[in-house]
Computed example of a mutant assay.
Amino acid sequence: MKNEIEILVTIDENYIQPLKVMLYSLYVHHRRENVKIWLIHEKISTKKIATLNKLITKFGWSFEAIKMKDDFFEEAPTVERYPKEMYFRLLCGNILPEHVKRVIYLDPDILVINSLLPLWNVELEGNLLAAATHTGVTNITTGINNIRLNTDHHYYNSGVMVIDLDEARERVNIQDIQETIEKYASYLLLPDQDVLNHLYGHYIKEIPDEIWNYDARKYLSYLTKSVGKYDLHWLMEHTAILHFCGKPKPWQIKSDTKFTALYLDYAHRLEHF
């Protein structure tokens, strides 16, 4: 892989502050790496883009924001029903410059607590992307999702993905996404994940969620599944990404999970950075 790690985010203005916390946590564990942050968005204000640029520049990294034009969605009349950021993630190969060959996509509700270099260098073996599943102890949801989406593989979480952009440019197109949305509209619970799994699940390399996409709600589930191995000490040494799936989010008052204090500590340190 090239020496520069390329990170992709796709958010609206409501997630600017969580994004800053996520990026700060990334910086804490990658002070010596060259990192480029790509932001694909629809209508974040110039002022807020400037604040992001200021922070990322302070990290010593590079930053580029791509603002999408409305006519990008002319072929997707059902887009009003779903976040446009969903399309930005799925179609990033067609949006980012052709010289960009690989990105790590990260949701903003994430903490990075160890190095992502092994993830950046993962061998995709010809697959479109790498992602993790959140199966839990019993793995009941896999069968449900297979029936719901007419699939025969694990259900992958789209919050952390290593994407081969040349493969994405070859395989992913807006027409297929539109047809899937129209066909499965009443069955789509998490639209971007559902579309990703239905269309591209066979082109995904599975990576361990306990390291690369740890569901912060499910500490006891991980502990049970590992027969006590994945305790807090193991997690802080081995897990690279904590993902605050579901609600409430750790920056909200009602959040009181095992990892809320850790998140708030990073947020507090960012304020004093």
Rank of each mutant, 00 (worst) to 15 (best):
T51D: 08
Q193R: 06
P208V: 08
I40Y: 09
N146Q: 12
P248E: 01
L90H: 00
K43Q: 13
E74H: 11
E6L: 04
A130I: 15
T135D: 14
N53H: 12
L124N: 01
H198Y: 03
K254W: 08
Y82F: 14
Y87M: 14
K254Q: 14
N121A: 08
E42H: 15
I5F: 07
V9Y: 07
P83K: 04
W234E: 02
Q17D: 15
G228M: 04
T224N: 15
N114S: 07
Y230F: 09
I207P: 05
E170K: 13
Q193D: 10
F73M: 09
N173G: 03
A65Y: 12
V122R: 05
F72H: 12
E80W: 15
D70H: 13
K2I: 06
I147C: 10
L188C: 06
L235I: 15
N139C: 03
K258E: 08
E42P: 14
K20E: 08
I104F: 05
L39R: 00
E75I: 14
S221I: 05
D176A: 07
I163E: 01
L117C: 10
D209P: 10
A131R: 03
H30L: 02
L39T: 03
L23N: 11
I40S: 05
A261M: 11
K20D: 03
T10D: 00
N145S: 01
K48Y: 14
T257Q: 09
M1Y: 11
F63H: 08
V172Y: 07
V103A: 04
N114V: 08
H30E: 05
E80A: 14
N146S: 02
L19F: 10
E125N: 15
D107M: 06
Y15K: 00
R171Y: 06
I5D: 02
H99F: 11
H41I: 00
D256F: 09
L124T: 14
Y184L: 05
Y187S: 04
L165E: 00
H134M: 08
P248G: 01
V172P: 02
M68W: 12
P118I: 02
T151S: 04
V100E: 07
E98V: 12
A216T: 11
Y87D: 12
Q178P: 02
A50F: 03
G136K: 09
A131K: 07
I40P: 09
D231C: 05
I253Q: 08
I66E: 03
G246D: 04
I113D: 07
E210F: 10
E85Q: 11
L235Y: 03
Q17P: 02
K205A: 06
M1P: 11
L96Y: 10
S62W: 00
E170C: 12
I49E: 10
T239S: 02
T180R: 06
I110E: 04
Y27F: 14
D209W: 02
V162T: 13
Q193E: 15
L39F: 05
Q175Y: 06
I241P: 06
K2Q: 00
D164N: 13
W212N: 01
I11W: 00
D256V: 02
V103Y: 01
K84V: 14
L96H: 09
L149Q: 02
G93Y: 01
T51W: 04
I207F: 02
K84D: 14
K69H: 13
T180V: 05
E98L: 13
E182A: 01
D192L: 00
I147L: 10
C92W: 00
P208C: 05
K218G: 10
L96S: 08
D209L: 00
